[in-house]
Simulated scan of single mutants.
Amino acid sequence: MPLIALTGGIASGKSTIAARLAEHGAVVVDADRIVRDVQAPGSPVLDRIAAEFGEDVIRADGELDRAALGARVFGDAEALGRLNAIVHPAVKAESQRRFAAARDADPAAVVVYDVPLLVEARVDDPWDLIVVADAPAAEREERLVRERGLDRAEARKRIASQVSDEKRREIADVVIDTAGSLDDTLRQTDGLWRRLSAGETA
């Protein structure tokens, strides 16, 4: 069972690649989904977040107030580190559980972990292949403005808050250039799938 890490910066086209691989038959495990699941109301992770950052980061319905928490940690490396120390171990444990479940269901499955913070948190895990969705920061800025309605300053701030494109490329086994057309991105992804289907991960 090949275990593939798929990463990329905000608006890099990573989700498009993940969806295409899923169409081909890959089991896609979404790190963002796991983060939401481990922070569900009543969870130990949410209780620890509230204890660390204050009950006001919990909404009246018991859900995490992501905006309030974001305001508390954004731009504060020390606070972000404390948050990550709570969340990352729980996400890692749950992702490992889902990888194992996929392997038990189909030992030949190709499992793709769609993970934005690979460089920051999971780069040393035993991946068979690391795939990076790559597009210039200027192009990603345009996508955030055009497709997500962000103003330009906010788009730049979000891109700047992430690890650099250079650091992602340094750890990549495969780079999918998403700066071109959608068809071009899908063509590269289809090529990756053919490689994975042939058992090629080196």
Rank of each mutant, 00 (worst) to 15 (best):
D128F: 01
L144D: 10
A93T: 08
I86M: 06
V115D: 02
E78A: 15
P44S: 00
E52Q: 14
P136L: 00
A90C: 12
I130A: 01
P107V: 01
E120P: 06
R98I: 13
R140S: 06
N84P: 13
E120D: 10
R48K: 14
R98A: 12
D104N: 09
D65V: 12
F99K: 10
E120G: 00
A67S: 15
V123A: 15
V87M: 10
L83I: 05
V119W: 03
R59V: 08
V57A: 08
A60D: 15
E141G: 12
A90M: 12
D134H: 03
A71F: 04
R146D: 13
D47C: 06
N84K: 12
Q96L: 15
V45S: 04
R72K: 14
A50Q: 02
V145I: 14
L118N: 06
V110I: 15
A108V: 05
R146M: 09
R98K: 13
L46N: 05
A137C: 03
V45R: 04
L129C: 03
A105Y: 03
L129Q: 06
N84T: 09
G70A: 06
V112D: 03
A105D: 07
H88E: 12
V119R: 09
A138E: 15
A102L: 09
A137Y: 02
A137D: 12
L144S: 09
E78M: 08
A105H: 02
A67F: 04
I49G: 05
A77G: 11
P126R: 07
R72Q: 06
A60W: 06
E55T: 13
D47L: 11
D106P: 02
H88I: 08
D65R: 11
L64D: 00
R146F: 05
N84Q: 14
V145N: 09
V91I: 14
A51H: 03
E52I: 03
F53E: 01
R59E: 15
I130G: 01
G54F: 02
G81A: 11
R82C: 04
R98H: 11
V132Y: 00
S95T: 14
P44R: 00
D106M: 06
L118S: 05
L118T: 02
D65S: 11
L117A: 07
R140A: 01
L118K: 01
E139G: 09
D76A: 05
E63R: 14
A108W: 06
A85L: 07
L144Q: 08
D76E: 07
L144I: 07
V123N: 12
E139S: 14
D47K: 14
V132F: 00
L69E: 11
D134C: 00
V132S: 00
R148S: 13
E142P: 07
D61P: 11
